[in-house]
Design a protein around this nucleic acid. Structure first.
Lengths: 150, 150
DNA sequence: AATGAAAGCACACTGGT
DNA sequence: ACCAGTGTGCTTTCATT
């Protein structure tokens, strides 16, 4: 994980479809050396994968909510986590310390849809309490800043 | 945005570096046509970009915190949002409704580093109050579930 | 770890249905 | 909206340092 690797990660974070050749020009290395390095970055887990970033807004889902969630005492966390795949409005989630058990992020078309998701979570998936707020906008922050410290 | 486009988005969400040829085989279309469709999906904003996904843990940052933040009355939000790029531990953030103004996600190597970030946010960037909790683990949820509804 | 050569593919165009 | 052909450029493997 030297300075060149950091450059490569930064470049691939901006555009994951850049060719090895193109990357090679930027870092002044041959394409196949770059390919080797990128493979190594994947193998060591620094790069988890290359993914398309979607815009929920362009899919008609302009309302995103963040909900802290507390489960009923009797529900199994593993099962809860598995079941969340069944709720397509959930775009991310994490188990947390503190007052609540989980925090979920939901992309909805309108308040009415959010309401049905809330009801569903309570009725079908064992959530006892739910504290939600609206996301006004996301900040443009890159996870690539971490490389400045490594 | 038909069923084929949805398949393409799903495939690119799994691996953004798949070739048009490969994608074409999956959806039974020529590479050419696939390239056209993908270009259109980018142009219409459904696909915002192709990014490398990093693992903070593999970079030595195994402690991730979520902090709700309230700003002092006198600080300009635009300036605050711009300044956050200067804090590399911040990996995402959003302005929110409710009790707090922003929610930030921070990737740190240990509690001590988190402490210095907290102090910095208060001293240099106008945060008045801060309520934090630890992320135990992230859920494996794909934003691609949204396509099931579109 | 990095390089160059060469074979095999993928990509962007153009043009055509 | 889709496909085929073409020229160019990319990726990969292997041998070499």
């Amino acid at each position: 994980m030297d300075a060149i690797d950091r450059s490569l990660v930064r470049l691939l974070d901006q555009d994951a479809r850049r060719t090895y050749n193109e990357l090679g020009k930027e870092v002044r290395l041959s394409a196949n050396t770059v390919a080797d390095r990128v493979r190594r970055l994947r193998a060591t887990g620094v790069i988890r994968g290359f993914r398309a970033e979607l815009d929920p807004g362009a899919l008609g889902r302009g309302l995103t909510m963040v909900s802290d969630v507390r489960l009923r005492e009797d529900v199994d966390r593993t099962r809860f986590e598995r079941e969340l795949h069944q709720v397509p409005q959930i775009v991310s989630g994490a188990r947390m310390t503190g007052e609540y058990d989980y925090q979920l992020r939901l992309a909805c078309v309108d308040p009415e849809e959010f309401e049905t998701v809330v009801d569903r979570l309570k009725r079908e998936h064992g959530v006892r309490e739910l504290r939600s707020r609206l996301v006004l906008h996301d900040l443009e922050v890159s996870t690539t800043g971490l490389l400045d410290l490594a």
